[in-house]
C-alpha cells in the first residue's frame, strides 16, 4: 500500500501554503558606506504570516546582519514601525497577503529620523518632543489616600488618545516633521491631548502653552497622514484639531 501514501504526500506538497516572496529591503551600514542600498531577498513564506516573520526568516536563515527593532512582536510595544510598500505600518501587524506579495515588498526605515543601521532609526528627537509636553499627571494639593476618581464620561473624553504606543508611525509620516524635525509631531500632541483633557490633571494650561509655540499645533497642515498611519486607529488629526480649538476657545 505504498502508492496511496505517495499520492497523499504529493497532494500535500501541491497544497503547500508557502509562496515565494521578494523582500526589497533598504540596507544602510555606516561602517561600510554612507549611502543606502536596496537589497532583494527571496524567501518562502506562508502569505498568512506577517512582514515581521519574513524579516525574522531573513535574519535567522539568510543574512544575520539585517538589523531591525522588535520586542513584543504583537502590536503593543511599538518597536517595529517601518515603511512597508511606502506606507508606515507595524511589521508585526501587517500580513503578507494584504500587501500584494506578487510584487516585491519594499521595507525601509521610517522617514524623518536619522537612520542608524538598516531599519533602526535614532528615536531621540521623537522622545524629546514627547518629554517636552510633560506626559505625566500633574496635580496640586494633598495626595488622596485612595485612587483619584473619575466619571465614565470624563474618562471617555480622552479615551482615544490613551491608545498610543509611541511607535512613531504618525510623526514619521508627517510632511511637516520631515522638513526640519522641529515640529512637535502628532505623537507628542496626542500624548499632550491625553492629559489636557483629563479631568484629574491640572497642568492642561501649561501643556497648551507649550503647544502654542512656533513649532506647536499651528504647524499642522491637516494632511491626515498621521491618522492614516496610526496602527492603533487613533484619530490623530482630530486630536490635534481639538487641541487647536482648546487654545482658541480658552482665549476668546
Amino acid at each position: 500500500m505504498a502508492t496511496p501514501v505517495l499520492d497523499k504526500v504529493e497532494a500535500e506538497s501541491a497544497a503547500s501554503p508557502y509562496i515565494t516572496v521578494t523582500m526589497r529591503i533598504r540596507r544602510f551600514n555606516p561602517e561600510v558606506s554612507d549611502a543606502s542600498v536596496w537589497e532583494d531577498f527571496q524567501i518562502e513564506i506562508d502569505p498568512k504570516e506577517r512582514v515581521l516573520d519574513a524579516l525574522h526568516k531573513i535574519k535567522w536563515d539568510v543574512d544575520g546582519t539585517l538589523t531591525f527593532r522588535r520586542s513584543c512582536a504583537h502590536g503593543i510595544c511599538g518597536s517595529d514601525a517601518m515603511r512597508i510598500n511606502g506606507k508606515n505600518r507595524l511589521a508585526c501587524k501587517t500580513l503578507i497577503k494584504d500587501i500584494n506579495p506578487e510584487k516585491p515588498i519594499t521595507v525601509e526605515a521610517i522617514k524623518g529620523l536619522t537612520v542608524l543601521k538598516d531599519l533602526v532609526v535614532d528615536m531621540e528627537p521623537f522622545f524629546q518632543a514627547y518629554r517636552d509636553v510633560m506626559p505625566f499627571l500633574v496635580t496640586k494639593g494633598n495626595e488622596p489616600t485612595r485612587e483619584r476618581l473619575q466619571s465614565a464620561e470624563d474618562r471617555e473624553r480622552f479615551d482615544d488618545t490613551t491608545k498610543c504606543i509611541l511607535c512613531a508611525a504618525c510623526t514619521s509620516s508627517c510632511p511637516v516633521f520631515w522638513n526640519d524635525g522641529q515640529y512637535f509631531g502628532p505623537a507628542a500632541i496626542v500624548n499632550a491631548h491625553r492629559f489636557i483633557f483629563d479631568s484629574r490633571d491640572e497642568a492642561g494650561e501649561q501643556r497648551l502653552e507649550i503647544l502654542n509655540d512656533k513649532d506647536g499645533v499651528w504647524r499642522c497642515r491637516t494632511t491626515f497622514n498621521c491618522t492614516d498611519a496610526c496602527p492603533r486607529g487613533i484619530e490623530v488629526t482630530k486630536a490635534i484639531q481639538e487641541v487647536k480649538r482648546a487654545l482658541i476657545t480658552r482665549r476668546f
Binding site: N29, V32, E39
Partner: peptide
C-alpha cells in the same frame, strides 16, 4: 550569504566615500 539571496549584497564601496 546563502544562495537564494539575489544580487546586491553590501560589500566595500569602490571609489566611494569611505569614512
Amino acid at each position: 550569504m546563502s544562495a537564494d539571496t539575489t544580487s546586491t549584497a553590501i560589500g566595500p564601496v569602490e571609489g566611494g566615500a569611505h569614512y
